[in-house]
């Protein structure tokens, strides 16, 4: 499920270089301490990203 699409290639903070591909949970197996959630992100074109 695509939650948000890229808003275009840019190196400025006014646009969004990362697309949220999915946020899934709870991921099995069941964990009594709390649910496990998985987030997958995608780099939009022409935005090499460092930490």
């Amino acid at each position: 499920m695509i939650l948000a699409a890229c808003t275009g290639a840019s190196s400025t903070t006014s646009q969004q270089p990362i697309e949220v591909v999915s946020v899934l949970g709870p991921i099995p197996p069941f964990n009594p301490g709390g649910p496990v959630v998985e987030i997958t992100l995608k780099m939009c074109p022409a935005n090499p990203l460092f930490l």
């Binding site: 591909v21 496990v36 959630v37 995608k42 939009c44």
Partner: peptide
């Protein structure tokens, strides 16, 4: 680095 059109995922237990 995370290159263009590449994806990355991670999991976290929400204690």
């Amino acid at each position: 680095p995370l290159l263009s059109d590449k994806t990355i995922g991670t999991q976290l237990t929400l204690i």
